[in-house]
């Protein structure tokens, strides 16, 4: 197997008195796309937030390329530069143009040359079909365009791993596709990714491995076809059933 990028061992996360993640271990290899699915509120997003130390952890260890990620480490911002994160609500900087949003961190945090970053940013924007929006402000974009910008912003840092935290959850249905296609494209390009999503078909298409997560623990992990066609645990079966039911109802409501 190829090189290990991310290694989480015995992670423990507690909010006040509630244990959110319990003794979780997970390894992601270079070029691998791992998709985490599970019921709402089971700790998936918290897990992603722990990985780049937006949350403190109460036990265990997270290592990126052998370097420990911890809220206390001095070089935290350098480690974070290697972890690209895309949020559910885009979180673009509203006072900057699309291009400035993308260029800010590479220029200021990584100290790269402005002209070089600009060229790359424009190329990346073009790749996701946003070259004409470079000088627009976030408020002038649709949700899908905002999210594609956020992905480009993360990409431009040359991260070793990309974390996607339910990036289509806040989008109108017709915009979901344009964002998911960008992620699929990145998967094909061999990017290492950890994706939390509720889009089951997409999960199946993009994943090299599905991790089913519930009550702060990994219940089951398998290749996508195996997981969706032959889930082993009762919890996973139940979840997949529930999901189909919920999905049917929501489509009816929408129509």
């Amino acid at each position: 197997m190829s090189q290990v990028i991310l290694e989480i061992s015995h992670l423990h996360k507690v909010f006040d008195t509630v244990t959110v993640i319990e003794d979780l271990s997970l390894t992601v290899h270079e070029g691998e796309v791992v998709v985490i699915i599970g019921p709402s509120g089971c700790g998936k997003s918290t897990l992603l937030r722990c990985i780049n130390a937006l949350e403190t952890i109460q036990g265990g260890e997270i290592k990126l390329h052998g370097n420990t990620v911890s809220k206390n480490s001095k070089d935290l911002h350098e480690i974070r530069q290697k972890i690209g994160m895309v949020f559910q609500n885009y979180e673009l900087f509203p006072h900057m143009t699309v291009l400035d949003n993308v260029m800010l961190a590479p220029v200021k945090a990584q100290g790269r040359k402005k002209s070089e970053v600009r060229e790359e940013a424009l190329a990346l924007l073009k790749r996701v079909g946003l070259e004409s929006k470079a000088d627009s402000y976030p408020r002038q974009l649709s949700g899908g365009q905002k999210q594609r910008t956020a992905i480009v912003r993360a990409l431009c840092m040359h991260p070793e791993i990309l974390l996607f935290d339910e990036v289509t959850a806040a989008l109108d249905p017709q915009m979901v596709r344009e964002v998911l296609e960008v992620i699929l494209d990145l998967a094909n390009a061999g990017k290492t990714m950890l994706v939390v999503t509720h889009e089951m078909q997409f999960a199946r298409a993009v994943a090299d491995r599905i991790v089913f997560f519930d009550d702060g623990q990994i219940i089951e992990q398998a290749a996508p076809d195996e997981f969706f066609d032959h889930p082993k645990t009762d919890k996973a079966k139940q979840f997949l059933n529930t999901f189909t039911f919920e999905r049917d109802r929501s489509t009816t409501n929408r129509a």
Binding site: E78, F93, K108
Partner: peptide, 25 residues
């Protein structure tokens, strides 16, 4: 708080987060 988080997630230092993201807004 998400504005801080997304800025920190990009690997900006604390002073940079304030200078470029928070204070201008």
């Amino acid at each position: 708080a998400h504005q801080y988080e997304s800025a920190f997630a990009l690997g900006l230092g604390k002073a940079q987060v304030y200078l470029y993201v928070i204070l201008p807004q």
